[in-house]
Amino acid sequence: MSYDARIDELKLELPPAPKPMGVYKPIVQVGNMVYLSGHGPLKSDKTLITGRLGLDMDVEVGYAAARQTGLGMLATLREHLGSLDKISRLVKLLGLVRCTESFDAQPAVINGCSELFRDVFGEDAGVAARSALGTNALPGGIAVEIEAIFEVKE
């Protein structure tokens, strides 16, 4: 099954591909590799999910924010490539979680994005090397920021 068809089968709603909020490109392709800049949890109504894990957000809400971030990343990929079917595999995922000093469940939060990519691209192509880190601040108070590297078919 194609990845684009999988999006429909899973009844996923991709938000508009986010526009840059600074001097950078949301996605850069070099050969058969695409590098996605950090994406935040942008909803379809163009608002962002904000908060701090361990203070005013729990893991479940953070997981949903990471999943929403993954949907935005898929929108960026689709806009740039024309089709998600051009994806060969996810190579690396880096997730940042805005949290309190004592919060230590960053991997459980970033699973929201990781599990989305696994569900769309499959166990082999959708699961990659990954880091999940905590931080005290992210732009605009967003709950998570995630970047990724994908290999595309030549």
Rank of each mutant, 00 (worst) to 15 (best):
L48C: 05
A65V: 06
M73H: 08
T50W: 08
R67Y: 14
L53H: 05
A64C: 02
D45F: 13
G40C: 11
G70Y: 13
K43N: 10
G38F: 13
L71E: 01
L71P: 11
V59T: 15
L53V: 02
M73K: 05
G40M: 11
G54P: 15
E60C: 02
L55C: 03
Q68W: 04
D56I: 04
K46I: 01
H39T: 03
L42V: 12
Q68I: 08
M73P: 12
E60Q: 11
G62C: 11
L71Y: 13
A65G: 09
M57N: 00
A65R: 10
V61Q: 13
P41D: 07
A66V: 03
L48G: 02
I49G: 03
G51K: 02
L48Q: 06
L42F: 12
V59F: 08
M57S: 01
A65H: 10
D58Q: 15
R52S: 08
H39F: 15
L53K: 09
Q68D: 05
I49S: 05
R67L: 08
G54T: 09
K43W: 03
A66E: 12
L55G: 02
L55S: 15
R52T: 15
V61F: 11
M73A: 13
E60W: 11
Y63G: 00
G38V: 13
A65W: 13
D58H: 12
M73N: 08
H39I: 01
L42W: 12
L74M: 10
G70P: 10
P41N: 02
D58S: 08
L53T: 02
L71K: 14
I49R: 02
L71V: 03
T47F: 12
